[in-house]
């Protein structure tokens, strides 16, 4: 079963193709942000590199965030449309889960982060379980200081990863039990997406394309302002 993975949750744009043989090809643009321009040509290129016809793809996997709204929508709209046209199932994976997957061999409390802009982070916590890691909190949004206080209060030995926390190293400086690591994998990657989706595909954890939506965690500003004005 071949899986196409689409990753546009951050400023990066990536896609990868793989299956039980592992990742066959991946394409990655580091200073993307022009998600809509790069993504579809990248998928074409990845197919060529993997010597695979798009029609051979059996599952479309996509990073559903949290992350950059515009990038996520480009990735999710592209992925849903491909799955619709190819008549194949989908797998949506959170960006924070992807980051945790890369450090799944750590026995510490794993905390993954993605930049949320406006001085905030998206983050979630994970624990090692047999065969991988398990998310033990919701996806959250908060300032680096919010996260630092939470980690201090937990008293756990913490492995902190992701470009979100790396933007604010000073917030975690004084925490003796927290190690902010730069694994070289500080962005969610399309390769990890294909690997993680493959594991889920083996367990037939598929989703319908209309059930896949970006994880926003933030309401639109207009809605927030309305609620404030209206006292809701």
């Amino acid at each position: 079963m071949l899986i196409l993975g689409i990753e546009t949750a951050t400023t990066q744009v990536g896609c990868a193709i793989g299956g039980h043989e592992g990742v066959l090809a991946s394409v990655h643009a580091a200073k993307g942000r022009r998600h809509a321009e790069y993504l579809v040509p990248s998928i074409e290129f990845a197919c060529e590199r993997a010597r695979v016809e798009l029609s051979e793809i059996g599952v479309v996997a996509v990073d559903v965030g949290p992350g950059l709204f515009t990038g996520l929508r480009v990735g999710v709209a592209t992925a849903k449309s491909l799955a619709f046209a190819l008549r194949v199932p989908m797998i949506g994976v959170s960006s924070l889960d992807l980051l945790a997957f890369r450090v799944r061999f750590s026995s510490r409390l794993i905390v993954t982060t993605v930049d949320a802009r406006r001085g905030e982070l998206y983050y979630a916590c994970y624990r090692q379980v047999p065969g991988g890691v398990q998310r033990v909190t919701d996806h959250r949004i908060g300032t680096p200081d919010d996260l630092a206080s939470e980690l201090l209060a937990s008293g756990d030995e913490v492995l902190l990863v992701g470009e979100g926390a790396q933007r604010y190293p000073e917030a975690f400086d004084g925490l003796a039990k927290v190690e902010l690591v730069d694994t070289g994998d500080s962005y969610p990657s399309a390769e990890a997406l294909v690997e993680l989706a493959h594991a889920r595909a083996l367990r037939e954890q598929f989703e319908r394309s209309d059930a896949i939506e970006p994880i926003y965690l933030r309401r639109p500003d207009a809605e927030i302002n309305w609620a404030v004005r209206d006292g809701r």
Binding site: A36, L39, V40, R73, A77, T78, L82, A85
Partner: peptide, 13 residues
């Protein structure tokens, strides 16, 4: 971008 992304994906597929 939603419509453009969907259209390009359909054209590719």
């Amino acid at each position: 971008l939603v419509g453009v992304s969907a259209a390009k994906a359909l054209a590719l597929a």
